[in-house]
């Protein structure tokens, strides 16, 4: 067999293999948890009620300071049962929205999950080795630095914007939980 023929066969075999892979699989990279599953995990023993918090100018100002971009939502829906609330928010990482679910018990984060991840890179933020950093975190208000988490969240190289999105959403949720009690 000549070198040319060997290359042709190798290339053909690789193409057939790739074609087979593409056609045999039908996954949806990015949808990691449906809303129903998230709520069942958040409220295993109770049926939550849907509630709404209106975003007035004062709240919007704080939210925009946290996210460092304009916020236009007029109100935000969430689920509540006892002292536990669950929130699902979309925030853009690099250029596509990441759907993030946050559960707060009292004033601390009990669970944070990436429900849908649509970016090409930065998927690491969905894994427990990253999201575990948020567990039991609470909000602090420092006069000089404004609203923030009570701890440092370690960055992941190549996923900085996704990390920022999760950090921003967790701060927004903790802030709104406090506001919902006033």
């Amino acid at each position: 067999m000549t070198e040319q023929a060997a290359k042709y066969r190798l290339t053909s075999a690789i193409c057939v293999l790739l074609w087979g892979f593409v056609n045999s699989a039908h996954g949806q990279m990015g949808v990691y948890m449906e809303t129903e599953d998230f709520l069942e995990t958040a409220f295993p023993d109770s049926e939550p009620e849907v509630s709404v918090i209106w975003i007035n100018n004062e709240r919007r100002e704080v939210m925009e300071e946290i996210l460092e971009h304009p916020v236009n939502a007029l109100r935000i829906s969430y689920w509540v049962s006892g002292d536990t609330t669950a929130w699902i928010l979309d925030e853009i990482g690099k250029d596509k929205p990441i759907t993030i679910g946050v559960v707060v018990q009292g004033d601390a984060i009990k669970m944070i999950r990436v429900l849908v991840f649509r970016e090409i890179r930065g998927w690491e933020v969905r894994h427990p080795f990253f999201t575990d950093q948020f567990l039991n975190s609470q909000l602090t208000r420092e006069e000089r630095q404004g609203v923030g988490l009570d701890r440092t969240i370690d960055n992941i190289t190549g996923a900085t914007l996704s990390v920022n999105a999760l950090r921003g959403v967790s701060e927004i949720v903790l802030f709104l939980v406090q506001e919902s009690k006033t």
């Binding site: 939210m63 996210l67 236009n72 007029l74 699902i88 979309d90 759907t99």
Partner: peptide, 24 residues
Amino acid sequence: ATAEFLEIGGSSVTQLNRNQLQER
């Protein structure tokens, strides 16, 4: 109706940066 519109999709998922999304 306005609130439903601004929440986009009127679902439980609120998009925080709607303008950015509309532009994109």
